[in-house]
């Protein structure tokens, strides 16, 4: 089995799912991305990414509560699986390891 990788956007969405916990569904993730890092993303892109990661086994989904705001439609609530958490963890460790290898970061203006 070849090693799975996560794309940048996938990683972003996965992190948001982890962050939002019980309340992780399409719109919430779009809002959260906009709020936390100021990036406007399209709803459909988030959906497609979520489904793709579901295929890969990093997130799982179940239908949540309906509301009037949604024309009576239920939400699909996503949650991070163990494999997903593992992936995030690995990614973070890799980053840190790489950062530690960068020789003294100094800003030239000092």
């Amino acid at each position: 089995m070849k090693k799975e990788y996560l794309g940048e956007f996938e990683e972003l969405v996965l992190t948001m799912v982890a962050l939002l916990g019980e309340n992780a569904y399409g719109n919430a993730i779009v809002d959260e991305i906009s709020e936390k890092i100021g990036r406007e993303v399209n709803l459909s892109a988030v959906h497609v990414t979520l489904y793709r990661m579901e295929d890969k086994g990093y997130v799982s989904s179940e239908m949540g509560g309906a509301s009037n705001m949604r024309g009576g439609r239920r939400k699909r609530i996503f949650s991070v699986t163990n494999a997903g958490l593992q992936m995030l963890q690995t990614l973070k460790e890799q980053r840190q390891e790489l950062w530690s290898l960068i020789p003294d970061l100094k800003f030239s203006s000092i």
Partner: peptide, 15 residues
Amino acid sequence: RLAESVIGDVWEQYL
């Protein structure tokens, strides 16, 4: 399988 949540999300954003 996806229609319900997609429409729901789109609806919510519209409102």
